[in-house]
Amino acid sequence: MKGPLKFKRRPATALVAMANSLSMGDAVPGDDLGQIIGAVVTDRAERAALLAAIRASNDPDCGLAVADLLTAFAVEAAEAEAQASDADQVIGQWAQRLAAGALLASFGAAIAGTVTGGLAFGLTLLSFSGFVFATASRIGGRVKMRHRAQERESADTLARHVLEAGKLGADGK
């Protein structure tokens, strides 16, 4: 048996409060909710605090509401991840290939003597810097994609654990 635990004001308890407020029919700003969920999902201490808060809550529906919000966040993150993946496959890959092709073409033209002197040097430099830029931007896009994938997985597992914690809280007391 636990005594009456008092929780601090932190992102985890703010999320429980928002979920409770939503289930009572009050509106909560969507971007605030997204930011809070993002902060809870990526922080281990907040995850633990959320599970403890769900276990300690007196309302068995509270865990359900929080789990549903987390699942909705995971779906949004999956959508963003798919968009980033599309951009990488369709635009990023071809930008890189195009720049690499231009680099090879400028080498070829310079070697064959079709383009000579400063112009050949300028073309090679231009296409080389294009290749470097394309590679760097592709890496940036992929880092973001991986970040979204990680958020999605964390939100999914946290939603499952929250449901379990809600069950434990209802039965265990």
């Binding site: 308890t13 409060a17 407020s21 009572m24 808060a53 007196n58 309302d59």
Partner: peptide, 12 residues
Amino acid sequence: APYHRLHNVLKV
């Protein structure tokens, strides 16, 4: 955050 909604669910 709307903590006042938690008054009989969770103590904050």
